[in-house]
Design a protein around this nucleic acid. Structure first.
Length: 104
DNA sequence: GCCTTGACCGCAA
DNA sequence: CTTGCGGCCAAGG
């Protein structure tokens, strides 16, 4: 699968994540049949179109992925909290309860 | 084309 | 629980 097609499928999938639920990078890649391309999913999020709910994608460790742009991290947390997602004192969220997968 | 970087991940220690 | 390492692979210099 070529990169461009992959990104479009990532965006299409992320658009289907319900409010208040999340998926993690590697999971998205695996669902699309491309295990090992978690980093490419990260790239797809960084370049996501305006209508893609990129904030519903977090790391497999249940934290908002660290990145140079601290402001976008804060923005992601605000958006998730606005959807009812709880964070503990260490900035972690209950991935086990919030994880979503297509066809659920 | 080579090398480095990065919104990653699973597993070993 | 935490960290480190290796594997991963696309982009950009």
């Amino acid at each position: 699968m070529n990169p461009e097609c992959f990104y479009r499928q990532v965006w299409a999938l992320v658009r289907r994540i319900p409010r208040g639920r999340v998926m993690f990078y590697g999971q998205i890649a695996a669902v699309l049949g491309c295990p090992g391309r978690a980093r490419a999913v990260g790239f797809a999020m960084r370049h996501a179109p305006h209508d893609v709910p990129w904030h519903r994608v977090v790391s497999a460790r249940g934290i908002i992925s660290p990145r140079p742009d601290r402001e976008s991290m804060a923005e992601q947390r605000r958006r998730l909290e606005a959807e009812g997602v709880p964070f503990d004192a260490e900035g972690r969220l209950p991935l086990r309860d919030l994880l979503w997968e297509p066809g659920e």
